[in-house]
Amino acid sequence: MFKRILLPVDGSDISTRATEKAIELARLCGARLFALYVILPELAEPYVSGQSRPFSVQDGTDRAEHCLSAVQAETDRAGVPCDCLAMHGGEPWDVIVQVAREKSCDLIVMGAHGRRGLTRLLLGSETQSVLLHSNIPVLICR
C-alpha cells in the first residue's frame, strides 16, 4: 500500500499523536518514514510556540533536534525505518509539499491543531494549505 510516508512534526501533543499513527501505519505497510521539522523564521516561532521571550535560529535548531530525536527513538523501538530532516524555510506547508515530492512520498500524515479566529487568520492553517497543494493523500490526526 504505502511505501514512503512523510511525517511533519512540531513537538506538540497533536504532532505526537500523528507520530504514533504514522509509525503504526508504516509498520503495518512496511513503509519508510520521513520525519520533517520545519524551522520557522525567527519572528514567527514565538507566536506558534507560545513563547514570550526572544527567539533565535539556534532555538529553532535545538527544538528540531529534540523533536526529531524523540521520533527517531520511537521508530527505532517499533522497528520502522526513518529518516529525520530539519529544514529552514518560509512557509511550512510549502516545505512539506516540496519534501513529499522530493522524497517520492505516497502519503503525508500530520496533525491538525484546530486553530480558530484571530490565531488562524494570522498564522493560517498549515494543514489546510498542505491539503490544497499536495497531489498525494494526506491523513489528518486530531
Rank of each mutant, 00 (worst) to 15 (best):
V95C: 06
Q72G: 12
K21F: 09
D83L: 12
P8N: 05
P46N: 08
P8G: 09
F34T: 15
S134H: 10
L118E: 05
L43W: 15
V97K: 06
S15H: 01
D62P: 00
S129C: 11
G30P: 06
L28Y: 06
L43A: 15
V80S: 04
R120D: 00
I5E: 04
S125P: 06
V130T: 08
S125Y: 06
L28M: 13
E42L: 15
Y37V: 03
S69P: 00
R63S: 08
A31M: 12
D83M: 11
E91M: 11
L68K: 05
V138W: 03
S12V: 01
T61A: 12
L28A: 15
V38W: 01
G111E: 03
L7V: 00
D62S: 04
P46F: 03
I96F: 02
G79I: 04
D62V: 06
G60E: 02
I140H: 06
D10R: 05
G50A: 07
E45H: 10
G124M: 13
D62K: 11
Q72S: 14
R116T: 12
Q72L: 14
E20A: 14
N135Q: 13
T16K: 11
M1A: 13
G11V: 00
Y37T: 07
K3W: 02
A64Y: 01
K3F: 01
S49I: 10
T75F: 11
G124F: 09
R63W: 00
A112V: 06
A112C: 11
G60Q: 09
R53V: 01
A31P: 04
F55E: 09
L121I: 14
T16I: 04
D10C: 03
L118W: 11
H88C: 02
G90R: 14
L43R: 14
I96G: 05
R17Y: 05
L118P: 00
M1R: 10
C67G: 00
T75V: 09
D94P: 00
A112S: 14
H133T: 11
L132T: 11
A44C: 02
E91C: 08
G79H: 03
R4V: 09
A112W: 06
I96A: 07
E91K: 15
R4F: 02
Q51S: 14
M110Y: 03
A44E: 11
S56E: 03
